[in-house]
């Protein structure tokens, strides 16, 4: 039971850190002089984007208006195993989370496990956009194959087809 409780605490603190970042998003979008909120359980601050861009724009989505930039929140908390801290960083561009990371500095082995589990679960997932829509002619992926390779693949497919029929 103690294990589960410790795990719950870790997860709650991480969620708090993420929630604070979202609060900052809103604060910044409403007032560009950025709010720095401090609470007893978590210390947080916002930072501007690393690409010292001058085009800090406001995006007007349906419900939300976020300012481009990198947001970071650090949370410290106590566990039965001692004091722990975790730092969550989220980068926003055009209202989309472009990167997110969880920096963990666990002192306790159990905390390390829970934080690693969170990190595992808090990875951004890639989403495709049509290359024709983003209008780029240059593409990098796996190497295009040669005619020789493609012919071989076609050849094998047709052989397999003959076997099937």
């Amino acid at each position: 039971m103690g294990k589960n409780k410790a795990k719950l605490i870790t997860w709650c603190v991480i969620i708090t850190a993420v929630a604070i970042i979202y609060v900052i998003f809103n604060a910044r979008s409403n007032d560009n002089t950025a709010a720095v909120s401090d609470t007893d359980t978590a210390h947080s601050h916002s930072e501007t984007a690393e690409h010292t861009t001058t085009t800090t724009t406001h995006h007007h989505g349906a419900d939300t208006v976020y300012t481009d930039g990198t947001y970071r929140a650090t949370s410290r908390y106590s566990t039965p195993g001692g004091s722990e801290s975790i730092e969550v960083t989220i980068s926003l561009k055009d209202n989309v989370v472009t990167t997110s990371s969880v920096q963990q500095t666990p002192n306790d082995r159990e905390a390390a496990e829970y934080q690693a589990e969170f990190k595992q679960n808090y990875k951004p997932l890639v989403e495709g956009k049509k290359i024709s829509d983003i209008n780029l002619s240059r593409v990098s992926g796996s190497s295009l194959t040669s005619r020789g390779f493609n012919d071989a693949v076609e050849n094998i497919k047709s052989q397999a087809h003959h076997h099937d029929s």
Binding site: T98, T99, N121, Y122, K123, P124, E127
Partner: peptide, 25 residues
């Protein structure tokens, strides 16, 4: 394999991602 993205801090790209934060938030 699970479509999750990992990248170094200064990889020079913008990615199209959604966070799988549904497990958290």
């Amino acid at each position: 394999a699970d479509n999750s993205l990992e990248h170094s801090a200064n990889f020079p790209a913008d990615f199209f991602t959604k966070s799988n934060s549904s497990t958290v938030l």
